[in-house]
């Protein structure tokens, strides 16, 4: 591990100043992802600024009926909070579907969404990876692609030598639920505070796969705000993985359904395990708007959403299975929610 200086400043503002002043500085919260990446040589900071005990650990009611999750609240605490379990079951279910008890006790509200978008090649410093080492190429193209993206990817076999190629996925379950809930991200940076809609926090590789989010260097998440859901709204998270526990999603679905009247619903859908970011299925949502949530309608909506999907061939058989699996998982999740609202 490369040597680094460690600092625990006296305030959040000081922590932001410290990181902003040092280009090779990083924030440390629970550390469950960062410490692993320090050991692997994937993260090589000169300065680690510890904010775990600086940001709020409170979960508090907002005047509009929503909930504010302090950045230092742990994944376990948020999943166990009665208000989250009753009002935002999709978030409790997503958190509980992720990692293990030990990790959830350590991982934080601010840190979980900022775990790296990654793949096995990103974690292996002996391989080419545009995300870890910009411009070096992408080893995933035609390699092991089972956990890789099918959405937000330009082609079935993108150019492995192009500097923009990256087919890694964002592995957070929590983030998929937050995208469906239209959470708001409270950020403090060198230029002051700003609020980012959660669905806009993460980015596609674009021309710089090294950047997972739109946060500028020195910007710190201080809280996540959950807006109130409409009366009668139902929400759920469904995760499909290779083993029953402690595995990343092959695909996952977070959904929120609100009945507008007889035969008409508003649906919010976010997909996990399929893109460089938590994928809000806005096209499917548009197709379903105002109509009945029949199985045929949901299948048609998913066909529209997945029209541009690019299954990745690979030496492990590739990940084309994700496309029908996504549709079936959305169908099953919405069926359960519709039945629950009857």
């Amino acid at each position: 591990m490369k040597p680094f200086a460690y600092a625990r400043p006296g305030s959040v503002a000081e922590a932001v100043r410290d990181v902003a002043a040092e280009p090779a500085a990083v924030f440390l919260a629970g550390g469950t992802n960062l410490v692993d990446h320090l050991k692997l040589g994937v993260a090589r900071p000169d300065l680690v600024v510890d904010v775990r005990t600086l940001t709020s650990r409170e979960i508090s009611d907002l005047p509009d009926g929503g909930l504010r999750l302090g950045a230092a609240s742990t994944n376990s605490e948020v999943a166990a909070d009665r208000r989250v379990r009753e009002r935002y079951p999709v978030l409790a279910e997503a958190l509980l579907a992720g990692a293990t008890g030990q990790l959830r006790n350590t991982a934080t509200t601010g840190g979980n969404p900022l775990q790296r978008t990654r793949c096995v090649y990103f974690q292996d410093v002996t391989t080419a990876c545009n995300k870890r080492d910009p411009g070096s190429g992408c080893s995933a193209v035609g390699g092991y692609t089972r956990h890789h993206a099918v959405l937000g990817v330009p082609a079935a076999l993108p150019d492995p030598t192009a500097p923009e190629t990256c087919t890694a996925t964002h592995p957070s379950d929590m983030a998929v639920a937050l995208a469906a809930l239209d959470a708001q991200v409270q950020v403090l940076g060198p230029a002051g505070e700003r609020t980012i809609p959660f669905a806009d926090l993460h980015r596609l590789p674009g021309d710089d796969p090294s950047r997972d989010t739109v946060l500028e260097h020195g910007e710190l998440i201080t809280a996540l705000d959950l807006p109130p859901l409409p009366a009668g709204a139902r929400s759920a998270y469904r995760k499909v993985r290779d083993r029953a526990s402690y595995a990343f999603a092959l695909v996952s679905v977070a959904a929120v359904v609100t009945a507008d009247g007889p035969g008409s619903s508003t649906v919010r859908i976010a997909l996990g395990g399929v893109a460089h970011k938590p994928w809000r299925a806005t096209r499917a949502e548009q197709v379903l708007r105002g109509g009945p949530l029949t199985e045929d309608a949901v299948r048609a909506a998913m066909a529209a959403e997945l029209a541009a999907a690019q299954p990745q061939p690979g030496i492990d058989g590739g990940n084309g299975f994700k496309i029908p699996l996504l549709t079936r998982t959305v169908v099953a999740t919405l069926r359960e929610l519709v039945e629950a609202t009857r």
Partner: peptide
């Protein structure tokens, strides 16, 4: 693997993913 699990300030946690200085 969980083999290093301890109770850290009362809760089960993994000391392999924690910096001692923190």
């Amino acid at each position: 693997c969980g083999a290093c699990t301890v109770l850290l300030d009362g809760d089960r946690a993994l000391p392999c993913l924690a910096l001692a200085v923190a």
